Computed example of a mutant assay.
Amino acid sequence: MYLRLQAPPASGIVEDTLAAAADEGTMSVLDILIQGGWVMIPILLLSFIAVYLFIERLLTIRQASSNPEVITDQVRDYIRSNDIDGAIAYCERKDVPITRVIRQGLERLGRPISEIQDAVQAAGKHETFLLEKRTNILASIASVAPMLGFFGTVLGMIRAFQDIQSLQGNVNPSVLAGGIWEALITTAAGLFVGIIASLAYNYLLDRIKRLTNGMERSATDFIDLLQEPVT
């Protein structure tokens, strides 16, 4: 009498390994993420993009940070001493959004004040646009990631009920619970990525608003300085 041995399929080995790990309570984070299915791939990709955008924008904002009062006072000293070239050179050395805005006005001295004001306002809007660049992607990730998570959960629940149907309802509560928690993995992952992206977006937006407010104050002070009576 001959016994025929047949190796289980690779997918069965993976499932048996994960099931054994779950029974022993030793499932790693990677094992749990794998159980979430293919929807975990775009969710993880969005998380990497969110981290990259946050770090890149944060570095940009830090490089753009400056002291508006100090810069305005320095430019005021140059103008009052009638050293316009020195003021322009100072703005070029600092090379931050505030000084780039003021430089646009300095380069147009001698023209009507309305033209100078328009140039300063246009420069301020451009600098604000550069600071806010790609932050809308971070906001989109904050809303898309949870939706992907819910989508993955729906797919998981569909598979779980298909398994129940294939077994003609002969399932015990542990099997049903296992299918449900596997389906909920994507929801948890999507919500986690969405929350982190939302916090990062709001933090960056607050920093950008502070910089923008500083630019607006400096631009207003600069225009007021040009309209001061000559003594």
Score class of each variant (00 low, 15 high):
Ile185Lys: 00
Thr153Lys: 00
Val154Tyr: 03
Leu167Thr: 15
Ala177Asp: 03
Leu176Phe: 13
Ala183Gly: 00
Leu176Met: 14
Val171Ser: 08
Ala177Ser: 15
Thr153Gln: 00
Leu148Lys: 12
Met147Asn: 11
Val144Pro: 04
Ser174Leu: 15
Met157Asp: 05
Pro146Glu: 13
Ala142Thr: 05
Ser140Thr: 14
Ala160Phe: 03
Leu176Gln: 09
Ala160Pro: 00
Val144Asn: 05
Pro173Glu: 11
Asn170Gly: 10
Val144Ile: 15
Ser143Gln: 10
Asn170His: 15
Ala160Asp: 04
Ala139Ile: 04
Ile164Gly: 04
Ala183Asp: 03
Ala160Cys: 07
Gly169Trp: 06
Val171Gly: 05
Thr186Met: 07
Phe151Ser: 03
Ile180Gly: 04
Asp163Pro: 02
Leu138Arg: 14
Gly178Gln: 13
Ala177His: 08
Val144Tyr: 04
Gln168Thr: 10
Leu167His: 13
Ser143Met: 09
Leu148Glu: 09
Asn170Trp: 08
Leu155Thr: 12
Asn172Ile: 05
Leu167Trp: 09
Ala160Gln: 04
Leu155Glu: 02
Ala142Trp: 00
Val171Asn: 01
Ile180Tyr: 09
Val175Pro: 08
Leu138Gln: 12
Asn170Glu: 14
Leu148Gln: 13
Ser166Gly: 14
Ile141Thr: 08
Trp181Gln: 13
Gly156Met: 09
Ile185Arg: 00
Gln168Gly: 15
Ile158Asn: 07
Trp181Glu: 02
Ser174Glu: 15
Ser140Asp: 10
Trp181Pro: 00
Thr186Lys: 01
Ile158Val: 15
Leu138Val: 11
Pro146Phe: 12
Val175Gln: 15
Ile180Glu: 07
Ala139Lys: 10
Thr186Ser: 15
Ile164Tyr: 07
Ser140Phe: 15
Ile141Phe: 00
Leu184Arg: 00
Leu155Met: 14
Thr153Trp: 03
Phe151Pro: 03
Met147Trp: 08
Ala142Met: 02
Val171Ala: 13
Gly156Arg: 04
Gln162Gly: 08
Leu148Pro: 10
Phe161Glu: 06
Leu184Ala: 11
Thr153Met: 05
Asn172Leu: 10
Ala177Gly: 09
Val154Ser: 03
Glu182Tyr: 06
Thr153Glu: 03
Phe151Ala: 12
Pro173His: 12
Gln162Val: 02
Ala160Arg: 04
Leu138Ala: 12
Ala177Met: 04
Ala142Asp: 05
Thr153Tyr: 03
Gly179Leu: 08
Gly178Glu: 10
Thr186Leu: 07
Met147Val: 14
Ala139Cys: 12
Leu176Trp: 08
Pro146Trp: 09
Gly178Lys: 12
Ser174Thr: 13
Ile158Cys: 08
Gly179His: 10
Ile141Cys: 08
Val175Arg: 09
Phe150Pro: 06
Ala160Val: 02
Pro146His: 12
Glu182Asp: 08
Thr186Trp: 02
Ile158Gln: 00
Val144Asp: 01
Asn170Ile: 12
Ala145Leu: 09
Gly169Tyr: 09
Gly156Glu: 06
Ser143Ile: 00
Pro173Phe: 11
Ser174His: 15
Arg159Phe: 14
Ile158Trp: 06
Gly149Cys: 04
Leu138Lys: 11
Ile180Cys: 01
Ile141Leu: 03
Gly149His: 03
Ile185Asn: 02
Gln162Lys: 06
Leu184Tyr: 01
Glu182His: 07
Val144Ala: 07
Ala183Glu: 03
Gly152Glu: 06
Ser143Glu: 01
